[in-house]
Amino acid sequence: MSHTDHSTTPVIQVRDLEKVYTVHEKEPGLRGSLASFVRRRKTLVRAVDRISFEIDAGQMVGFLGPNGAGKTTALKMLAGLLHPTDGFVRVGGHVPKERRTEFLKNITLVMGQKQQLLWDLPALDSFLVNQAIYEIPNDEYQATMREFSEILELEGILKKQVRKLSLGERMKCELAAALLHRPRVLFLDEPTIGLDVNMQVRIREFVAEYNRRFNATVILTSHYMADVTALCKRIIVIDKGHIVFDGDLSALVEEAAPGKTVRLELSENVSDERLSFYGKLTSREGLFADVLVPRNETSRLAARMLAELPVADVTIEDPPIEGVIGTLFAGTNRQAVDAVPAGAEQAAR
């Protein structure tokens, strides 16, 4: 809501960021284990390959990409956990890997698959530890706790042992613990993984609310497309360590899927041929039909259909985002397969 710093420099600046790992490989089975125990076969993996982008204060950006694309590696370099092999990173003006106190007090990293809460104690005890570590004054702590309890509905779960909480309850507490110090930059790595739909929505709403209240900058990675589409206008698609798309979600949809679906409910039967006249018939079931039409002609063709066909009801939809992203990856994967193996094999030798 209220934010005073309208500085012009982006909060996050990344130029030609690169991370190369050395990993060892093992053939399956005991024989492979023995061979690997004696002599490790080293392979270089370029997890993040010279990516560049900037993010302004208050923006929420979604990182999309298949597993192993380099999203988490990129996030961890931004959070200062991993030292980049090469390239330039600034977060709020700081070099993340130096892990200065002012930097660490301004960021947080939430990992849906890992937990920082003390397992054997109620979440409140973990919160107290964080309060001391982040030097949060008592009144601020109380105020934050009140807000969080209200939005996340923490009432009644804070005093239970963490190990006795459900996954959803635990995730809510994890989020609260990670945001207790009111960081301005949030790195959320799969924060809703494994949660049911209701809980996903609740977490999403909380992140949106937090962003509004504190003008926080958010980078979100998620397997659930709904998380990303609900929160982020801007999308960065990473595949094989490269950025393959950076821009508006709507532009992504336009680029990857230049059509819209006109969903018709007919009042009487019409032949497939007649429907195909307007566009590509993508599904047909009795009186229900989906017709894919070029984006820029949507309204004209929809109007004609309404006028010329016995239409009971009509809706116009963007194709589902999952499909769009899937098409995008399918495209880049084909290119990547052509380009990568030569280098990878060399590295393996």
Binding site: L81, L104, L109, K114, Q116, I133
Partner: peptide
Amino acid sequence: RQGTMDFNLLKPVDA
């Protein structure tokens, strides 16, 4: 091994 070392490195006290 489990990656929870991350949380220690994220805290603004000497890790």
